[in-house]
Design a protein around this nucleic acid. Structure first.
Lengths: 168, 168
DNA sequence: TTGAATTTTCAAAATTTATTGAAAATATAT
DNA sequence: ATATATTTTCAATAAATTTTGAAAATTCAA
C-alpha cells in the first residue's frame, strides 16, 4: 500500500471511529490529519487535503484546541496560522479522559447524588429500585472517577508514572 | 424531590449522556427506564412512559437486546412480551466494554496493523510520521485491549475477581 | 491610516440520523 | 381454521446535526 492510500484510509476510519464516541466526523478527521503531519499545517492545507470549507475547518480546529489536542503555532515570517497536534498517544488519551471526565462524568455524578435523596417510602418497590439503581451507578461512577484521576495524574507522579510506563 | 420528577430527570440525563457515547438518545432512555423498573414492562408501557412510537420502541429494544443489556421475558398467562434490564451495574459496564471492544477496538487494531506495513522510504519524514503515529496508536490500543480483557474476564476468574471486588 | 491577507461568525442549505405509523408478518386463543 | 392480539418492518417524514460560503471582523505590514 502506498502512503497516499494509507493516509486516506487512516483519516477515513479515524473519522468513523470518532462518530462512535460522540465526536463529529470532521473533527476526528482533522485530528487524524494533524497526527500524521510531521510539520504544522495551515487552514488552507486542511481545507485542501480533506476537501472541506474554511468555516468548517475553523470551527473544528477551535474545538480541537478547546479539547487541548491541537495547538496554534506561529511561524516567524509567516502570515498564516499553523496548527499542530500532540503526537504522544498517551498524552492524547489522558487529555481526552481529563476533558470527558470534567464535561460528562463529574456532572453526572453530581446529579446522581441529588437523585438519591428522593423523598418517599423506601418500602415502595418503585422507590427502592430507583434508589438502588441510582446508588449503584453513582458508586460505580465514583470508582471510575478515582481510577481515571490516577491515570490523569500518573505522568505527574514518579511512582505511578513508572508503574504505568509498562503500558506506554 | 418526588419520585416522578426524579425518574424524569434520570431518564432525560441518561439519554443525553448516551449521545456523548455514540448511543442514540431513545435507546439510552429506554435503558434508563428499564433500569429503574423493578418488574419487567411491555412495549406499551415504554411507549406510554416515554411518549414514543411503537416502531421506535421495537427497534431500540432490539438493539438493547443485541447489546446484551436487555432481555425479553415471557410471563405465564400474559399475551404480551415483557422486557427487563440487567441491574448489576458492573455487569452492565463489562457487557458494554465487551461489545464495544468487539465492534470498534478490534477492527481498528486490525486496520492499524495493515497500515503500518506501508511501502515507502522510512527516511522520508511523511512516511516516518505516519508509521510512528499508526504504530503508537496500535501499541496503545493493544494495551487497552489487554486491560479490557482483564476486566471482562474478571468475573470469571477467582483471583482477579477478588481483586476487582474492591471496585465494586 | 489604508488596504490586503487572514480568520471568524452564523444564517441558510445540505446531509445525516431518528421517528412515525400503517401495512405486513407472526403468534396465540378459541 | 379463523379471528384477534401482538410484533416487526420500512418508506415516508421529521428532527437534529453538520457544512457551506459570503460578510464581518481582525490582524498586520507599509
Amino acid at each position: 500500500m502506498k502512503l497516499t492510500e494509507a493516509k486516506a484510509q487512516f483519516i477515513s476510519s479515524w473519522g468513523a471511529f470518532g462518530t462512535h464516541w460522540g465526536i463529529n466526523r470532521t473533527m476526528a478527521q482533522i485530528h487524524a490529519l494533524l497526527l500524521i503531519s510531521p510539520d504544522p499545517i495551515t487552514q488552507d492545507d486542511i481545507m485542501e487535503q480533506l476537501s472541506i470549507s474554511r468555516g468548517n475547518v475553523n470551527m473544528n480546529t477551535r474545538d480541537l484546541i478547546d479539547w487541548g489536542l491541537v495547538d496554534r503555532v506561529l511561524i516567524p515570517g509567516e502570515r498564516k496560522e499553523f496548527f499542530t497536534a500532540e503526537k504522544d498517544i498517551w498524552k492524547v488519551a489522558t487529555q481526552i479522559i481529563k476533558e470527558r471526565k470534567k464535561r460528562e462524568l463529574d456532572p453526572m455524578l453530581k446529579l446522581l447524588s441529588q437523585l438519591e435523596q428522593i423523598e418517599g417510602d423506601k418500602k415502595d418497590k418503585d422507590v427502592k429500585q430507583f434508589v438502588d439503581t441510582v446508588a449503584g451507578i453513582r458508586k460505580f461512577g465514583g470508582q471510575a472517577d478515582k481510577v481515571l484521576d490516577v491515570m490523569i495524574k500518573a505522568d505527574e507522579s514518579w511512582i505511578l508514572g513508572s508503574m504505568l510506563k509498562f503500558f506506554k
